Amino acid sequence: MKTSVLIFAFLLSLGSVQAQKKVFPQTPGMVSYTYRNSFSKNVPATLDTIKALGITDMEFSNLFGKTAADLRKYLDERGMKCSSFGVGYPDLQNKLAEVGQNAKTLGAEYVRVAWVPHKGPFTLELAKQTVADFNTFGKQLKDQFGLTFCYHNHGYEFEKYDDGTLMDYIIQNTDPRYVSFEMDILWTFFPGADPAALLAKYPDRFKLMHLKDLRKGVVGNLSGGTPVENDVALGTGQIDLATILKAARKSGIKHFYIEDESPSVATQVPQSIAYLKNLK
């Protein structure tokens, strides 16, 4: 009887430990855009600021007037790395070799684009051209440089199509050998989609994630835009981060980056890091 009681107590305590398991045990990375104003003035000092927060994994979407070799030197000196390199759509269309070489110099594994040029609503015709372009970009980057191409959604792709959206169309029609995705959770939630459900639907297609939160009370749409002040510290907005991060742990996501577009990064970023660290 005493043994049974002890076993029951052990199982109960084990359950309690499991209940307290951290949802996000790793350290997040950082998107350079978060500190764009600071980077534009002093790149080394900004990297020092980020490193002081305990963050060493960067996604650069701008060279900030430096060469890729300059940035790599600054990163190496601080024991930091660049895992993803973001560029514009015209860069991939017109100077893909330069993009690939810069990404390799930075030490990145991924090349990411975050906007498909368009005017007005995103259409099926645009989605078809996007698929063709992505397959081309991705194959060239993989074959020539060994890089993985990722598309970062921005909200407008969630126009309804058939029994899903044009985002579904893009995911389903791009070649998974050459095209992967970076989920921006704000720009998935904002147009009305469920980030956790999308990860569960395509568990192997998303490799990167932008961690953001949307101010409470803000109503989304398909525009792909909202005032930067609507970016708030993680855990203070309306996005269910715990559920999304649980789904992300079951998916193919390799890198998580904090992105805060607001003018309040000095206070919000430390708050976001603390939230992730303590999320159970």
Rank of each mutant, 00 (worst) to 15 (best):
A247E: 04
Q93C: 12
L53P: 05
N102M: 08
T67D: 07
R249A: 15
K73L: 14
I171D: 00
P203T: 04
Y257S: 04
V131C: 02
Y35Q: 05
Q172P: 05
K104E: 03
A200P: 09
N221E: 07
K212A: 03
W115F: 15
L241C: 09
N102C: 12
F60R: 12
A193F: 01
L211V: 05
I170G: 00
S13R: 13
F158P: 09
L245A: 03
Y33M: 11
H255S: 08
Y33A: 12
E229F: 04
K73I: 06
Y178L: 05
K22V: 08
K81S: 14
L11P: 12
I185M: 14
D57S: 12
A108H: 00
P270R: 05
K277M: 10
F145L: 12
V131K: 02
R78T: 06
K142Y: 05
L241W: 04
E229T: 13
R72D: 03
E157C: 11
A193Q: 07
M209L: 10
E77M: 11
L6S: 08
Y275W: 13
I171A: 00
A103H: 01
L279Q: 12
V131G: 01
D260I: 06
A200T: 15
S223D: 10
D175R: 09
P263L: 10
L245W: 02
A196F: 00
T236H: 12
V228L: 11
T174W: 01
R177D: 15
I253F: 00
G29S: 05
L14W: 14
A266N: 12
P44Q: 03
G15F: 06
N102V: 06
E182S: 01
K104S: 08
L198D: 01
T105M: 09
C82V: 04
F158M: 14
Y161L: 06
V113P: 03
G120Q: 03
M58A: 05
A200L: 12
T27L: 08
A127G: 02
Y161V: 08
Q144I: 05
Y151E: 00
P28V: 04
V113S: 09
F137E: 00
P263S: 14
P176S: 02
Q129L: 15
K119I: 14
L53N: 09
L199V: 08
N94D: 15
I239H: 09
P203E: 01
L147M: 03
G15H: 03
H255K: 14
K73P: 03
I244W: 02
L208Y: 00
F149Q: 00
E77C: 06
S16G: 11
L96P: 11
A69K: 15
S83F: 00
R249H: 14
